[in-house]
Computed example of a mutant assay.
Amino acid sequence: MDFTVRQIARMIDHSILRPEFTNDDVRAGCAVAAQYQVASVCVRPCDVPLAAELLRDTGVLVGTVVGFPHGSTTTTVKVTETEQAIRRGATEIDMVLNVGWLRSGDIASVEAEIVEVVRAAGAVPVKVILETAYLTDEEKLAACWASERAGAAFVKTSTGFAPTGATIDDLALMRSAVSPKVQVKASGGIRSLDTILAMAAVGVTRFGSSATAEILEDLARRQVTVPAGRA
């Protein structure tokens, strides 16, 4: 499967989520996102206004996280976070589902919460983070089905704060669980072009990564044609 640098860039959500990041770190991350014309940045909720200002008129969307990173805040808090983020300039929402409810088998509560966040988001797409590191295959499937029924635009593997992140097996399972209306996002440990290419081959269409520049520069190098006689 062949991709241009532009095509891969438009599949990346450049991650700027580390808790120790300063305002200057956020500015630097947004500059990378604008330079490479990625799909979006994913920033901490407190950074949404700054990112929205920096990326205005660049074509790069501003995403943020809800219930991050553990998913255990109340539904009311997640709804409020979503509404406030959108008012402040967010155009995508990545929410962590309630992992404890899911592992308890309370799928109805998991789904009802996603419904509330999707409703609060309105036209803004919601990506549901499953945190696959903590789940059985059966729980991953149940989470995907609940997310689609609730109206989510994406199902997503990980926050990047769990013991492990995205795997090919999990992504293939998630892709098989949802209809073509729902996209699959890989996040957690996405640090190389080869990883992205392998995951795209199983149907992943969006990637959360902080290694954007390295990934895209690698692809650009691979696509350079060496003129005859200069090898």
Rank of each mutant, 00 (worst) to 15 (best):
T58P: 00
V66D: 04
V66N: 12
C46K: 13
F3M: 08
A34C: 00
L216R: 10
G122Y: 11
R88D: 08
G59P: 07
R230K: 15
D13P: 14
I215C: 03
A146L: 05
S209N: 12
V26E: 06
F161H: 02
Q183S: 09
A166K: 10
Q35F: 13
L173C: 04
T212E: 11
V128T: 13
L54A: 12
D106C: 01
D2I: 09
C46W: 01
V184E: 06
V32A: 13
L17H: 04
A228L: 14
G100E: 02
T75V: 06
D2R: 13
A51P: 03
E217W: 05
T91F: 06
S15M: 15
G208E: 10
R119P: 12
R206N: 05
A133W: 08
R119D: 14
E81A: 02
P69S: 15
V26W: 08
V226A: 04
S109G: 02
R222K: 08
P227Q: 05
G89Y: 10
D47N: 07
A186T: 10
R18A: 09
V182N: 02
E111H: 01
V226W: 08
V99S: 02
V118Y: 09
M95E: 11
R87D: 10
L216I: 08
A121S: 01
A31V: 11
V184S: 01
D24G: 07
G188W: 10
G165R: 08
V204G: 00
P69H: 11
A231E: 11
I114S: 04
A121V: 03
P19E: 11
I196Q: 00
T225R: 14
V32G: 02
I114A: 05
R88M: 14
V224S: 13
F161Y: 12
T82D: 02
A177W: 03
S209Q: 06
T91D: 03
R175I: 07
P69T: 08
S210A: 15
F154A: 12
S104C: 00
A39D: 07
V60L: 13
D137E: 14
R103W: 01
L17Y: 12
F3D: 12
S158G: 15
A162K: 12
I190W: 11
I12P: 11
V115T: 15
Q183G: 15
L197P: 00
M174T: 09
H70W: 14
A123T: 04
A120S: 15
D94M: 06
P19L: 01
L50E: 11
A220D: 09
A90C: 06
D170H: 02
G71M: 12
G165W: 06
